[in-house]
Design a protein around this nucleic acid. Sequence first.
DNA 1: CTACAACTTCAAGTAAGCTTTAAGTCAAGA
DNA 2: TCTTGACTTAAAGCTTACTTGAAGTTGTAG
Lengths: 127, 127
Amino acid sequence: MTIGEVARRSSISASAIRYYESIGVLPKPNRVSGRRVYNEAILPLLGLVQYSKGVGFSVKQIRTLIAGVESHGRFSTALQKLARNKIIQLDEMIVQAAQMKALLEDALECRCLTATMCGSRILQRHD
Amino acid sequence: MTIGEVARRSSISASAIRYYESIGVLPKPNRVSGRRVYNEAILPLLGLVQYSKGVGFSVKQIRTLIAGVESHGRFSTALQKLARNKIIQLDEMIVQAAQMKALLEDALECRCLTATMCGSRILQRHD
DNA sequence: CTACAACTTCAAGTAAGCTTTAAGTCAAGA
DNA sequence: TCTTGACTTAAAGCTTACTTGAAGTTGTAG
């Protein structure tokens, strides 16, 4: 696969793919007359990148994550730590997202945020 | 309250608070001899800012959100649209976060991501 | 009166995460 | 052979969300 095909199939721009490679998020692919040639394995990797971004990993964290995928079998302590911290963050995120959703739904129902906000517990935790 | 007190109580830096005011996220407070004087109402507002940031609102979206809080009673169609779109995004985010959490937990259990990734449904949705 | 902390403004700097631009290479088709 | 389109690089540019720095003001405490 050329970078153009990968871009089309992953919905990630070619320039972003080159950028990811340049900062070590993606492994360097083979070249044929100077051009990058990818195999199918790049797609789930890019899927992981997208997914990780979606839940708030920075590209540098994603690099650590991908390194874990690439280094078959090994799961470094750095990666374990990252994973554990992220699991905690994800739990917080899930709660927060659910609360924000409830707040917005309430607001939509009564067509105003003021009343919703005053009644909401999530905004009352100040001293 | 001075900006310093607000900063301390909200854990948001004074410079960030001034920045939020400058781009219209926060209302302009009263001044006493040139200095900003806030009342308690600023705290839940800053709480909403923090919360919104946490679930992926941009500061410009937060501005729209805060405008909805400030304009007592009115809930503009723009804000309704923002709220509806955000509710959809939040649903996706919750699912994605839960899946990523499961992936990381599985990875921690078997101490490698490769096996986890290959067995995961979330990274298999490519054509 | 002076010193000091906490504020003020405005402009410039920073970091992340790409995108865009310019100039060049390569293989295939007319 | 020439053109075309997809690729290559390096460097510069852009947006978001602030932070930092410089220079000045204010009220209080010694």
